[in-house]
Design a binder for these strands. Structure first.
Length: 115
DNA sequence: CGACTGACGCCGA
DNA sequence: CTCGGCGCCAGTC
């Protein structure tokens, strides 16, 4: 049944639910992970994410669709590259949320991540 | 305990 | 569309 893992773990598992070819915002992940108001914590958690978990950190962007890292920075470039590789269009360091924003199906979501 | 710091979010200028 | 300011939350000093 529903267990109650450490916040970081819940965040990782939620991010793992974001499908290839789509992106989600930090705040959206925080909400889905049951941590409303903690968008900033999502960024931190992604930084701590164990490599073996294969967390798709690059699918997380700001609510307005912009990549959180400074445009042109090493991290921003790598994130853009990862996204482009799976078909997500990135222009001017930003993604069109109306087109690539992930709108999770509630039923499937509950099934997929029982905390 | 207060000040400062972010992979944030929202709103007004 | 870009900035600036402010709220927010968990850490760190």
């Amino acid at each position: 049944m529903a267990t109650k893992p450490h916040p970081h773990e819940r965040i990782w598992r939620t991010v793992l639910a974001v499908p290839e070819g789509y992106v989600a915002s930090y705040g959206q992940i925080a909400d889905l992970a049951g941590l409303p108001g903690r968008a900033r914590m999502v960024g931190k958690a992604l930084g701590f994410a164990p490599d073996d978990l294969q967390v798709p950190w690059y699918r997380i962007v700001r609510s307005d669709g912009r990549i959180a890292f400074p445009a042109g920075s090493e991290y921003a470039e790598r994130q853009k590259q990862q996204l482009l590789e799976e078909g997500v269009v990135v222009l001017k360091n930003r993604i069109k949320m109306n087109e690539f924003g992930w709108k999770p199906d509630l039923a499937e979501l509950l099934m997929k991540l029982e905390f």
